[in-house]
Structures are given as structure tokens and as C-alpha cells.
């Protein structure tokens, strides 16, 4: 069979990225331009600023990617782009550029769901064995997804309020850690002990999650201690928070693995870089004798490589787009 080369584009939040992927699992070249230092100043991603920077950088990122791969568009079979979920104005830049590339190069356009991209980042580390369960944890999502074949997603549980990534960022801010709080909280938690008693979030039989309660509990705890004139042990609070939220993720994932009798667990999304979560899931999969796929740390955050991997299967699934393609900021996986 002829090799399929996909030129993939990702601009759903604050990373401008392009990648060339062969056959859905071989990375030829990837370029990621992160705006993290720009948004740090504002304590979070400012959508308008993200869109402005995508517009500024987009063709440079494309050129750099082709140069890195030592390829031209003559070597490419398809253009792929993230069309949701994400920030409307940010998605728009990638989509318009993708449509223009498709017109100019006469290559068909594939539309890709950003969250499918996160799941398919695991294609770079192993083969999918169905049925499988994917735990998707990021700044915008906390979901348990069941898949019985390629590019087919059934959501069995999700957060009812904040995502886990949001909870990490907000708690980080309260205890005085700069944006993005997740990775720094993870580091801090390694140095502490679990001494603070925090409520286990939505500790029930459902597959849904809730992280706004524990977030409020941390905020109240910090305020109360402050009023009493007591300091907070940041390391210990980070440890307590992390152990509590990882605990509930693992507990519900374990229940789903058993009930759905899956062969594999995939973890995906920005928070899948979290070391405590990775360790806990490894332990869980050992215990249940289920294979665990976790993406390389470099593919945990937003990147176009994962979009190129997902695009191959999206194409086999008929997910083609025309020049009317528009962002879908609230796009769901199922």
C-alpha cells in the first residue's frame, strides 16, 4: 500500500503547530510555537491575543515544518486541521489557512477533533487494542471514553463542572504559583506530604467527575488559615490536592476498566503529563493486567503531530471537509 502523508495543523488554543505524519503513526517533522510566555503576563490564555499570534506565525510555522521534513506539498496527500473543541478565534486561523492550502495545493482537507488528537497521540507509542478505554484529562476536559474500533468514541463519563486542568490552575493561583500551574504543582507535590484533609470530589458510583468543590475547599482553607494568621505549607497542600484528585480519577477509571472489560487503557491530554497520575495508572494497570499507553511527554500538550495521527483514521472514517468548514468550539467526541 502507498504511504499516506498528512500535513496537519493545530491552533485550538495557544500553540501554533504544524506536523507531517506518515500513515498515522510515523512523525516526519513537527513544529510547535508556544505562546505560553505571552499569556503568562495575563495569568491565563487571552483568546484575542492567541488569535493575533496565530495569524502572525501561521505561514512561518508551515514553512519551518516543510523545511524540517525536507519536503514540499507535492509529497503531501492530505491537509488536516483541528476544527474543535477550542477557542473560536484561534481555531479559525488554522481552519482558514488549511482551506487556503487545500485550494492552492489541490489536496483534500480532513477535519479533526482536538480531543481525538489527544487520544491518538498514543499511536506514536503503541498499537491500539480494542475495546479500549481512554482517560482524557486536560485544561478543558475530563472524560472517560470507550472505543470499540478506530475513530469511534463513546463518552461514558465527564466532568460536571471544572476540568481537572482548570482545577489545577486555579488551586495553583490560590497558593501563589504562576501560570501554567499544573506542571509546577506536580513538582511541588513531590516534595510534600498528604496532611490536609480535602473532600473527595464526587466519590460515587457514576463515571462523572466534579472538581469545583475541591477547588473551593482549597480556596477556603487558604483563606481561613490566613485569617488565623497561620501560614500554608504549599508542598503539603499540593500533595494533598494531587493525591485526592488522582485518587478519584484512578478509582473511576478502575471501575470502568472492569465493567467494560477493556484490553487497554489510554491516557491523553495535557494533564496526562502529570507524574503522579502516570504512576498511579501504571500501578492500576499492573494490578488489573491491562496494557497502558501513555503519550510521550512532548505530545501531552497541544501539538499538530497528534492531529496528523488522528487525521489518518478520521480520513478512513470519512471525516472530509470542504471550504465551508467552520470552527466548532464546543465540539464533542461522540
Amino acid at each position: 500500500m502507498k504511504d499516506v502523508f498528512i500535513f496537519a495543523i493545530e491552533t485550538s488554543c495557544d500553540e501554533t503547530s504544524a506536523s507531517i505524519i506518515k500513515n498515522g503513526n510515523v512523525e516526519i517533522a513537527t513544529v510547535i510555537l508556544s505562546q505560553i510566555d505571552i499569556h503568562k503576563e495575563y495569568g491565563g490564555v487571552v483568546p484575542e491575543i492567541a488569535s493575533r499570534n496565530h495569524t502572525k506565525a501561521i505561514t512561518l510555522v508551515f514553512e519551518e515544518c516543510l523545511k524540517k521534513a525536507n519536503m514540499t506539498f507535492d509529497d503531501i496527500d492530505f491537509i488536516a486541521v483541528t476544527y474543535g473543541p477550542g477557542l473560536n478565534g484561534a481555531l479559525l486561523v488554522g481552519i482558514e489557512a488549511a482551506k487556503a492550502l487545500s485550494l492552492a495545493t489541490k489536496k483534500p482537507l480532513i477535519k479533526v477533533n482536538h480531543m481525538a488528537g489527544h487520544i491518538y497521540a498514543n499511536k506514536f507509542v503503541g498499537t491500539f487494542k480494542f475495546p479500549l478505554l481512554a482517560l482524557v484529562v486536560s485544561g478543558g476536559h475530563t472524560e472517560l471514553i470507550y472505543m470499540d474500533k478506530e475513530y469511534s468514541f463513546k463518552k461514558i463519563g465527564s466532568t460536571l463542572d471544572d476540568s481537572i486542568g482548570e482545577a489545577y490552575d486555579k488551586v495553583a493561583r490560590v497558593i501563589g504559583i504562576s501560570y501554567p500551574g499544573g506542571p509546577l504543582m506536580d513538582k511541588l507535590a513531590k516534595k510534600g506530604r498528604h496532611t490536609y484533609n480535602l473532600p473527595a470530589p464526587k466519590d460515587d458510583n457514576s463515571y462523572d467527575f466534579s472538581f469545583s468543590g475541591i477547588k473551593s475547599a482549597v480556596i477556603n482553607l487558604v483563606h481561613n488559615e490566613k485569617q488565623k494568621g497561620n501560614g500554608i505549607n504549599k508542598e503539603n497542600l499540593a500533595t494533598s490536592f494531587q493525591e485526592t484528585v488522582v485518587g478519584i480519577l484512578v478509582k473511576k477509571t478502575k471501575k470502568a476498566i472492569k465493567e467494560y472489560n477493556v484490553k487497554q487503557l489510554l491516557v491523553a491530554g495535557g494533564v496526562s503529563a502529570n507524574s503522579a497520575l502516570r504512576d498511579a495508572l501504571e500501578k492500576l494497570c499492573d494490578e488489573l493486567n491491562v496494557e497502558l499507553l501513555k503519550p510521550d511527554i512532548k505530545y501531552c500538550t497541544d501539538n499538530a503531530a497528534m492531529i496528523g495521527a488522528a487525521a489518518y483514521y478520521a480520513y478512513l472514517n470519512g471525516q472530509m471537509a470542504d471550504f465551508s468548514l467552520d470552527p466548532n468550539p464546543g465540539l464533542d467526541l461522540d
Binding site: E48, S51, R52, T55, I58, T59, F62, E63, F73, G89, L92, V93, E96, A97, K99, A100, L101, L103, A104, T105
Partner: peptide, 19 residues
């Protein structure tokens, strides 16, 4: 319109660059 201009600029610069 911020968004409007970005649509036109992104399309135009991508076409001009790739062609």
C-alpha cells in the same frame, strides 16, 4: 472587525506564500 480581518489576512498570506 478583528476576527474578520484575520480571516482575510490568513487566507491571503497563506495563498501568496504557498504559491
Amino acid at each position: 472587525s478583528f476576527t474578520g480581518i484575520r480571516v482575510g489576512i490568513t487566507v491571503a498570506k497563506t495563498l501568496a506564500w504557498v504559491l
